[in-house]
Write a protein that binds this DNA or RNA. Structure first.
Lengths: 246, 246
DNA sequence: CGAGCGATTGATCATAATCAAGCGATGTGG
DNA sequence: CCACATCGCTTGATTATGATCAATCGCTCG
């Protein structure tokens, strides 16, 4: 697999060979592994590193006192967790593995160096953080205004677009390693209701899903159902005016 | 009224006199005024400035094709809108005035200068942006997991804490200039239902609200009802190790 | 004075939660 | 190798939460 982080950044700006090399060398430490359901960092902890997801799916989540869990964001390969979380002393949420996950830890000083030497790369990192914030806002809209089936459709469209950006989607097909319970905790409805919505979407020919193989026969149709507009992902090379000219 | 931005930043780090002066001089332009319901920036536009709310309440919001509106964030006096939104070419949401609003526009270069000359001040600005992101995550939890009355209670607690940080809350009393429709579009329930939840909270002695005068007799009780934990606001001077020593 | 807006109330309907049970696949220990 | 437990998915029945529809009231403003 190609470097997902690199692929994603090129959705914003074209990087120079030197920048690409700096990105590849970002994380000197060894790869770490985690099993599904284990935590990378827990709420209340003091984060020491920035984490880069190499493979697998992780998520940010919060739990209420009585056990209700809300998944706040999905972390996919190439996602850097909280570039500047080092400013905040304590984590206000947890990061956990949804599948088996490989990740690397990058110390803070690496980023100081990037900021100093590769301003365009730094811009790309800031852009990435702003896109995450934009996604978070869209989730607010999703939970606040859309109906259950609209929410599910919207979520699938978002996941598809994000995976496509890192070349993990082809011809409407993706690997979706989530359980229905994960989906329930993401879109804020019960697992039973998720199951019924899925059956409805299947019956309407909008999705196919067996094991982890997920297929969207007609993306435009699913986008209409979910009132999905991809603008908020900012994948249309908004940094083109900064492109490296090599 | 004191400078709200300054008051807020001091919840993170103690600033030097020079930094305080730089902050006061941030926005050379004249104050602009807007009536309630007018927009500061609209989705799709290319923002030219960073906006600082001086007085009044504004909000970020998004509208679905069929008219459903979701308020995504409240912007209170001292809130700086999207310090680094200048990286993104187009707005993915709108910013509108909920009450009459006074604001000032700050050009990008002012921030380059601050970054170069006042690193501690820059840290405070980054902290502020991270707190906004944290609030957005908490809203995701609010909409996804809490019941209607929990949501309302939680929202009131959050607003109270934020106003307290800029000294606009005293002894449980705040000015709350929102309509029930605004609240409905914020917590994702219908206006009729908001009205009924409010009556319930009133009947239980948890809130009093006449015109814009809002009173919380027992904040701890309201916090329990809303499962509210203020950690996510990061108001406990997490930057104390960076304090100016004057 | 009439229009418009926000708040309020009642009645009815729709969406989604909860409770309960069963199924199939997987994995584990005796 | 089988018995058993667990987990995720599925289905049905019932209940609860909140939406929708409709009407009224008070207030402000032109």
């Amino acid at each position: 697999m190609q470097n997902a982080l690199l692929l994603k950044y090129e959705k914003f700006v074209r990087l120079s060979a030197a920048e690409r090399a700096a990105l590849m060398a970002l994380t000197p430490g060894a790869k770490k592994r985690l099993r599904a359901k284990e935590d990378i960092v827990r709420e209340g902890a003091a984060p020491q590193f920035v984490y880069l997801i190499v493979s697998g799916w992780a998520c940010r989540y919060k739990t209420l006192e009585d056990g209700r869990r809300q998944i706040i964001a999905f972390l996919l390969p190439g996602d850097l967790c909280d570039l500047n979380a080092l400013v905040l002393r304590t984590m206000d949420h947890s990061i956990g593995a949804l599948t088996d996950v490989e990740y690397v830890e990058a110390p803070k000083k690496v980023f100081d160096q990037i900021a100093a030497e590769y301003p365009r790369l730094m811009q790309a990192m800031i852009w990435d953080g702003l896109v995450s914030a934009s996604i978070q806002r869209e989730w607010t809209v999703n939970l606040g205004q859309r109906t259950a089936s609209e929410r599910m459709a919207h979520l699938f469209c978002e996941i598809y677009h994000r995976l496509q950006a890192i070349e993990m989607a082809h011809d409407g097909r993706i690997i979706l390693p989530l359980t229905q319970i994960d989906l329930a905790d993401t879109v804020g409805i019960s697992a039973v209701h998720v199951n019924r919505i899925l059956q409805d979407l299947r019956a309407r020919g909008l999705i196919q899903w067996r094991n982890a193989d997920f297929f969207i026969p007609d993306l435009q149709a699913l986008m209409r159902v979910g009132l999905f507009n991809p603008n908020y992902l900012h994948f249309d090379r908004e940094g083109a005016h900064l492109d490296a000219n090599e």
